[in-house]
């Protein structure tokens, strides 16, 4: 918790425009700063960005944990069900697809809001397809494969679109895939917040079935757990979390896969009563740290967040696994 607060303040005080630590504190706590624009930057750019990082990190890490437990597979992440592919399909159709039909129109249509809308529509389209399938089939592993297949289909459609599109549209799409924590208005933050709270709430409600799933589905059922119902809830929570985050911040990789592993290594437990709050915490901290690095303190350039999460995160996980010599799952 302390680390989280520390990272939060650090993240707010660091950015393209250098603002002194005291000024940052003054701005946060409403005191007069030397410069009105500093307060403006902090309140309308840095704090929303830091909050986005906290919520996205927490949400992605939690949905990763849910998927890893549901599929009992350490390689599962928030996007195994094709949610991010759905989002990228939505974004691709908006950015590249529209330009194929009317080059003039699309230029005005593509904005942050419409992009978020398109990608969330894409991810929810895939999510509902997956949930529809999930209620039909009994085997959870088949569901995993079906999710991957949905992912392949959407990825293929995106490739076809990018093949026919103009270079600048393609570039715009590629920029979207880099992910971005900035540019969220307070209103958008509110929507994201509601979605995250909803997703976290369902997850907390599912702690008991999640623990039951640790024994395998048959044992879980023999303990009185409704497999279909709990599976539906878990997929729903993942979809809401990962879908809304991807819609607003782009497909941020790695956090969802790595943070649950990191947390299991540190806490050395599989009890979801501990794991759920722990991954929320570590997810926020990790993404905040990545965001701080991505901002390149003191520089005007901002690196793509999606690259940073993997560049920093992957070696950490490799190091942890090497040190423990044993994969704990």
């Amino acid at each position: 918790m302390v680390v989280l607060c520390g990272c939060l303040i650090l993240s707010i005080s660091l950015g393209s425009v250098s603002i002194s630590f005291t000024d940052t504190m003054k701005a946060i706590f409403g005191a007069e700063t030397q410069n009105e624009s500093l307060t403006y930057i902090i309140w309308n750019y840095r704090i929303p960005k830091a909050l986005t990082a906290i919520m996205s990190g927490a949400g992605l890490a939690l949905s990763g944990l849910l998927m890893q437990t549901l599929f009992r597979n350490p390689l599962a992440g928030p996007f195994v069900l094709g949610i991010s592919s759905g989002a990228s399909l939505g974004a691709a159709v908006l950015i590249m697809g529209l330009s194929l039909f009317s080059g003039i129109l699309s230029a005005s249509v593509v904005s942050n809001v419409s992009l978020a809308l398109a990608s969330s529509m894409g991810s929810f389209l895939v999510l509902f397809l997956v949930i529809g399938v999930a209620t039909k089939i009994k085997d959870t592993m088949a569901l995993l494969i079906i999710g991957l297949m949905f992912g392949s289909i959407t990825a293929a459609v995106v490739s076809v679109l990018s093949y026919f599109t103009h270079a600048e549209k393609l570039q715009q799409y590629v920029y979207w895939t880099f992910g971005s924590l900035g540019d969220l208005s307070w209103g958008q933050l509110g929507i994201l917040g509601v979605a995250i709270v909803f997703g976290v709430g369902i997850s907390i409600f599912s702690v008991k079935p999640l623990n039951g799933y640790l024994l395998g589905e048959n044992y879980a059922q023999s303990l009185g757990i409704h497999l279909k119902k709990s599976r539906f809830l878990i997929i729903m929570a993942t979809g809401i979390l990962a879908g809304s985050i991807t819609a607003f911040a782009g497909p941020i990789a790695f956090i969802g896969l790595a943070v649950p592993h990191l947390t299991r290594q540190i806490f050395n437990t599989t009890d979801h009563k501990i794991l759920v709050p722990a991954v929320l915490m570590y997810g926020s901290i990790t993404l905040l740290l990545c965001d701080i690095v991505a901002q390149l303190p003191g520089q005007a350039e901002v690196l793509p967040i999606n690259a940073i999460t993997s560049i920093i995160g992957a070696p950490v996980v490799i190091w942890l696994l090497m040190r423990k010599r044993k994969m704990i799952f």
């Binding site: 009992r72 409600f205 702690v207 008991k208 623990n211 039951g212 799933y213 640790l214 024994l215 395998g216 044992y219 303990l223 009185g224 757990i225 299991r264 050395n268 437990t269 599989t270 009890d271 009563k273 704990i328 799952f329």
Partner: peptide
């Protein structure tokens, strides 16, 4: 069992799930 990273006691405690509250 799917996850063996539990202590013996934790695993046995899962047997109490039908009796415990929603948080377990």
């Amino acid at each position: 069992i799917a996850s063996k990273n539990m202590t013996v006691k934790e695993l046995i405690a899962l047997g109490r799930q039908p009796y415990t509250n929603w948080m377990g």
